[in-house]
């Protein structure tokens, strides 16, 4: 009788424990579902959500990659634009320098002016001019003109049979005014070296020669233009 009662109590306790567990779990589940089951996204199964997330992640990564690529190409373009700008600036500078050297523009700068005249004792010949120009070039003259005829790389000075002097297709006569742009000191000192200098040498021969240094000399641009016909760029 006592044992039966004990058994009954044990059974009651176990069954109530089972009920507690069952209801506790059930109510927890009710609560969870009630609080999460609000929108469609939460209705979706976890696997579906996972695939959706993976899909979006893939898309995001793709977009990111594309963005990165585009950024890169934009950078490249910017770089080339910059490079082009630099190159064209350099080319501009080169062109300007070449123009100045070729005498395509009026130029000015410090330098010297030499005036040589025929005298009764001495008639100035073409080679006197050539000699002078060589001396000036040697002394570092950057630009030279004879009677406002610009001397550049293809210039020539020849003596015609009738005594006329031709400088780059233009006739020049005495007095010859030679302008040279360059370092004044170098130019004047190399010309006026004692005895061996151009001035002393030619004065001894009876030439009338005057040297003048100026801070600003204007040399006009070259008017004659020789076409390039035969020479070509490159190696053969």
């Amino acid at each position: 009788m006592k044992k039966e009662k004990k058994n009954e109590i044990i059974m009651n306790v176990i069954i109530s424990a089972v009920c507690i567990v069952l209801f506790a779990i059930m109510f927890m589940q009710f609560k969870t579902i009630e609080e999460t089951d609000i929108t469609a996204i939460e209705n979706m199964r976890e696997t579906e959500l996972r695939t959706a997330i993976a899909e979006w992640k893939g898309k995001y990564e793709e977009a990111l990659e594309q963005l990165e690529e585009n950024k890169k190409s934009i950078k490249e373009y910017e770089q080339t634009i910059e490079d082009n700008g630099e190159a064209s600036e350099l080319i501009d500078k080169d062109l300007q320098e070449a123009d100045m050297k070729l005498g395509k523009t009026d130029i000015y700068g410090e330098g010297i002016v030499i005036t040589i005249k025929n005298t009764d004792d001495y008639q100035i010949q073409a080679y006197d001019l050539i000699d002078l120009i060589n001396e000036l070039r040697y002394a570092g003259a950057e630009a030279i003109s004879i009677n406002d005829v610009r001397i550049f790389s293809t210039s020539y000075i020849v003596q015609l049979a009738d005594g006329l002097t031709l400088v780059s297709d233009q006739r020049v006569t005495s007095p010859f005014v030679i302008k040279a742009i360059g370092n004044q000191t170098y130019l004047s000192s190399s010309l006026s070296l004692k005895d061996s200098g151009y001035i002393d040498r030619n004065k001894a021969r009876g030439m009338d020669i005057e040297l003048e240094t100026r801070n600003s000399i204007q040399i006009l641009k070259n008017t004659s233009n020789r076409e390039v016909k035969y020479m070509k760029e490159g190696e053969k």
Partner: peptide, 27 residues
């Protein structure tokens, strides 16, 4: 015993922490 167990279980379940949605399927 059953009634007491049910009521106690309900109370415990209501005050228990929420289960993550991922595990609610198992529950």
């Amino acid at each position: 015993a059953i009634v007491i167990g049910c009521i106690l279980g309900a109370v415990i379940g209501i005050y228990a922490p929420m289960v993550p949605y991922t595990y609610s399927g198992y529950l």
